[in-house]
C-alpha cells in the first residue's frame, strides 16, 4: 500500500499502462504519434507531481535515496550504467540506414480537365451528366436494363482488379501500386461526380496528369474498347451496387 502512495511509482505505473494500451491498439499507432501521446502523458504527470510539495517530495525521495544510500549501491550503479547504454542504443537505432524508399506522393483525385475528346468528339466534363440516369425516375424498366448493361461491362472488364464486391480487392489487385480503387470506400466514387468517373475510365492511368504518377497506374484506357454508353452504364452500376449517390454540381 505504501508503495502505491509513492508519486514516482504512480508515474511509472501510469506510463507503463499507457504504453501497453497504446501498443495494443490495432491498427498500430505510428511511432511519431506514439511519442507525441507519451509526451502529453508525461506533461500531465509533471503537473500532477508539482501540484503539491508532499507529492514532489514523495516523487524525489526514492530517487534521492538511490543516489546516496549505501545499501542501494548495486542498484545505483546498475541504473547509472543502464541510462547511457540505453541512450547510445537509441542514437544508433535512429542512425541506422533506412531500408524503405521514401513514399512517392501522388494526387489520388487530381483536378479533371474541363473537357476531353472521346472518340473524336468533345465532351465537356463540367456539363456532362450521365444520360442514362434520367430513366431512374421516369422509366424504371429502362433504368434497370442500363444497370444490367453496367453489370455485364463490370464483370467482363473490371472485377479482376476492382473485385467481385467492388472493394478494390480482385485477384490481381495486390500486384499493383497504387492499388485499384475501392468503390465501397467513402473516399472514392462517393466523393466524385459521374463525369469525373467518365474521364478516369475513358482515359485511364495514361490520362492522369504528372502529379498523379500516370506511369504507375494500372488502370487501362477504355476509350476504343468500351462505347460511351457502356461507360455511362458501368458508372450507373457502380453507384447502384455500392448505394453511394454520385456527387452533383449543386
Amino acid at each position: 500500500m505504501r508503495l502505491i502512495r509513492n508519486a514516482l511509482v504512480q508515474c511509472l505505473a501510469v506510463l507503463l499502462l499507457a504504453l501497453a494500451v497504446l501498443l495494443a491498439v490495432r491498427p498500430p499507432i505510428p511511432a511519431s504519434l506514439l511519442t507525441f501521446y507519451l509526451a502529453v502523458i508525461g506533461v500531465g504527470l509533471g503537473v500532477y507531481i508539482t501540484a503539491t510539495t508532499e507529492r514532489m517530495e514523495s516523487f524525489w525521495r526514492p530517487l534521492h535515496a538511490l543516489l546516496i544510500l549505501d545499501r542501494l549501491r548495486p542498484a545505483r550503479w546498475g541504473v547509472l550504467l543502464a541510462l547511457p547504454v540505453l541512450a547510445a542504443g537509441q542514437t544508433a537505432w535512429s542512425l541506422l540506414p533506412t531500408r524503405q524508399a521514401p513514399a512517392t506522393l501522388r494526387v489520388i483525385h487530381p483536378a479533371p480537365p474541363t473537357q476531353i475528346r472521346f472518340e473524336g468528339r468533345s465532351i465537356n466534363l463540367r456539363e456532362a451528366r450521365n444520360p442514362l440516369r434520367a430513366a431512374k425516375a421516369s422509366e424504371p424498366r429502362a433504368f434497370a436494363a442500363h444497370v444490367e448493361t453496367g453489370r455485364r461491362v463490370y464483370y467482363q472488364n473490371c472485377f479482376q482488379c476492382h473485385g467481385d464486391n467492388l472493394a478494390g480487392d480482385g485477384p490481381f489487385a495486390h500486384a499493383f501500386n497504387p492499388r485499384p480503387a475501392n468503390f465501397q470506400d467513402l473516399g472514392t466514387i462517393a466523393q466524385l461526380q459521374e463525369s469525373y468517373l467518365f474521364w478516369r475510365i475513358a482515359k485511364g492511368g495514361p490520362g492522369l496528369p504528372p502529379e498523379s504518377a500516370p506511369g504507375r497506374s494500372a488502370m487501362p484506357r477504355w476509350e476504343g474498347r468500351l462505347s460511351e454508353e457502356e461507360i455511362w452504364a458501368v458508372i450507373l452500376f457502380l453507384y447502384e451496387m455500392t448505394g453511394h449517390p454520385p456527387r452533383t454540381w449543386d
Partner: peptide
C-alpha cells in the same frame, strides 16, 4: 558516425549523471 555518435551520447549522459 553510426559508431561515434552513440559513444558521444553515452559519454554525455554519463557525465551528467
Amino acid at each position: 558516425r553510426l559508431f561515434i555518435l552513440p559513444l558521444l551520447v553515452a559519454a554525455l549522459v554519463g557525465a551528467a549523471e
